[in-house]
């Protein structure tokens, strides 16, 4: 066989203009979620494009985690539609829903590692469930993911209760990445990490995005992450998305909360 030559696509960060012609992987329309008599969000619309890192900001308690959980189907919604990969999650058969669940990975705010399994076993849970591969490859892949997220190999045989807060975040990212998902949901991945660790985490996320075409939905309060890795930012307040766009849009916004957020003392320090 003749060797095929081929042209290389230069690596390039997406620009806002790209956004219009890109595939929407998560489309939320008219979402309303509430508990009891309390309404957390109403008429919320959100698009997440393929291959982007979306930073999701909002004051504590505005419902960022609740929105994530609603998209994942863990919190019931009152009205609205949620489409993932172009499919309405309500209209799916259990089988196709399972297929979609294999294509996303989730890092919960509290880690949510299985406490009776070691880190390595935790990473292997989804693999054992969905992949039919040899025991050797299973071990190697688990170790690979564990190293990839910056954990030492000796952490592999530790139980979650023996890990530090930052290690829990990393281990649970390793588990979220176990199946090489197309979308990862990260709920405050860098909170509780030291600044250097947080920076490495950001680099890791952006490497994965570039090499695997990963779409990242990242809830974060970390201004550094917002500046350095996020392609687009969406801000949640009063139960709605008040603004979305690249960081420049955010900086230019006149919404009082956004002004306070992006022009506060900490934000200026992060920009400097």
């Amino acid at each position: 066989m003749a060797e095929t030559s081929h042209s290389a696509t230069p690596t390039r960060r997406p620009t806002p203009q790209d956004v219009n012609d890109r595939e929407v992987v998560i489309r939320v329309r008219g979402l309303e979620v509430g508990f009891g008599t309390k309404t957390i969000m109403k008429d919320l619309d959100l698009d997440v494009y393929r291959g982007e890192i979306l930073g999701f900001v909002g004051a504590s308690g505005t419902g960022k985690s609740v929105l994530t959980r609603a998209i994942l189907g863990l919190v019931p919604k009152r009205t609205g539609t949620i489409e993932v990969f172009g499919e309405d999650l309500d209209a799916l058969s259990p089988q196709s829903r399972k297929a979609i669940e294999q294509r996303w990975g989730v890092l919960f705010q509290q880690g949510a590692l299985f406490s009776s399994l070691t880190v390595k076993q935790n990473v292997q849970v989804p693999m054992r469930e969905y992949l039919s591969i040899s025991e050797r490859l299973l071990d190697e892949l688990a170790m690979l993911k564990i190293e990839m997220v910056g954990l030492k190999p000796d952490a592999a045989d530790k139980f979650p209760s023996d890990l530090s807060g930052g290690m829990i975040k990393r281990a649970s990212l390793a588990r979220a990445l176990a199946l090489d998902p197309e979308i990862v949901f990260l709920d405050e991945p860098t909170s509780g990490l030291d600044p250097i660790g947080a920076g490495e985490f950001d680099d890791l996320i952006s490497t994965l995005q570039q090499t695997l075409g990963l779409t990242v939905f990242m809830v974060t309060h970390d201004l550094d992450s917002l500046h350095s890795v996020c392609d687009r930012i969406a801000a949640l307040a009063e139960g709605k998305i008040i603004a979305s766009g690249p960081i420049d849009t955010m900086l230019a916004s006149n919404h009082p909360w956004l002004r306070a957020y992006f022009h506060g003392k900490r934000a200026r320090a992060a920009l400097a």
């Binding site: 690596t11 390039r12 393929r50 291959g51 990969f85 297929a99 570039q210 695997l212 075409g213």
Partner: peptide, 30 residues
Amino acid sequence: MAGAIARDPNSFHKQASLPVSNAYDPTAEL
């Protein structure tokens, strides 16, 4: 970069169908 994978028009539909179709199975011609 990501776009090269993302823009492949097939990349999404092939994955969505269950069971995975054989047309995209990995092969090695030797």
